Amino acid sequence: MERLEELGITHGGIVDAPEGSALSFRDPDNIALELFAWPG
């Protein structure tokens, strides 16, 4: 999240859920991307 902010990329922030955490953003071609991390 910090790196996206350094690059000026808009993102949805980290969303925590029981099944893990996700961070959504769009690439320069406006394609939606999501990073996901399992808990633990």
Score class of each variant (00 low, 15 high):
residue 28 P to R: 11
residue 29 D to E: 15
residue 37 A to I: 05
residue 14 I to S: 04
residue 34 E to Q: 15
residue 34 E to V: 06
residue 39 P to S: 00
residue 29 D to S: 14
residue 3 R to G: 06
residue 34 E to T: 12
residue 37 A to P: 00
residue 15 V to F: 05
residue 13 G to A: 09
residue 18 P to N: 08
residue 7 L to T: 02
residue 10 T to Y: 00
residue 11 H to E: 06
residue 25 F to K: 06
residue 17 A to H: 12
residue 18 P to K: 11
residue 27 D to M: 04
residue 5 E to K: 10
residue 9 I to V: 15
residue 9 I to K: 03
residue 22 A to H: 07
residue 13 G to N: 11
residue 7 L to K: 14
residue 40 G to K: 07
residue 18 P to W: 02
residue 32 A to Y: 01
residue 30 N to R: 03
residue 34 E to C: 10
residue 11 H to C: 10
residue 7 L to N: 04
residue 28 P to M: 11
residue 33 L to T: 03
residue 23 L to V: 09
residue 3 R to F: 13
residue 8 G to S: 10
residue 3 R to V: 05
residue 21 S to C: 06
residue 1 M to E: 09
residue 35 L to Q: 05
residue 35 L to W: 09
residue 8 G to Y: 06
residue 40 G to S: 08
residue 40 G to T: 05
residue 13 G to W: 08
residue 25 F to Q: 10
residue 14 I to F: 07
residue 13 G to D: 10
residue 13 G to Q: 10
residue 22 A to C: 11
residue 7 L to R: 15
residue 35 L to S: 02
residue 2 E to V: 06
residue 12 G to Y: 06
residue 21 S to H: 04
residue 32 A to H: 12
residue 32 A to P: 01
residue 38 W to M: 10
residue 15 V to C: 04
residue 34 E to G: 02
residue 2 E to G: 04
residue 13 G to M: 07
residue 38 W to G: 02
residue 26 R to Q: 13
residue 9 I to T: 12
residue 38 W to L: 09
residue 11 H to L: 09
residue 14 I to P: 03
residue 5 E to L: 05
residue 35 L to T: 01
residue 11 H to T: 11
residue 31 I to P: 00
residue 3 R to S: 12
residue 39 P to D: 00
residue 35 L to P: 00
residue 30 N to A: 11
residue 10 T to Q: 11
residue 23 L to D: 05
residue 30 N to H: 06
residue 7 L to C: 11
residue 22 A to S: 15
residue 10 T to D: 03
residue 18 P to V: 08
residue 4 L to G: 05
residue 34 E to I: 03
residue 32 A to E: 10
residue 15 V to L: 11
residue 31 I to T: 13
residue 24 S to Y: 15
residue 3 R to T: 10
residue 24 S to C: 08
residue 38 W to V: 02
residue 6 E to I: 02
residue 11 H to G: 09
residue 5 E to Q: 11
residue 38 W to Q: 07
residue 1 M to S: 13
residue 3 R to E: 14
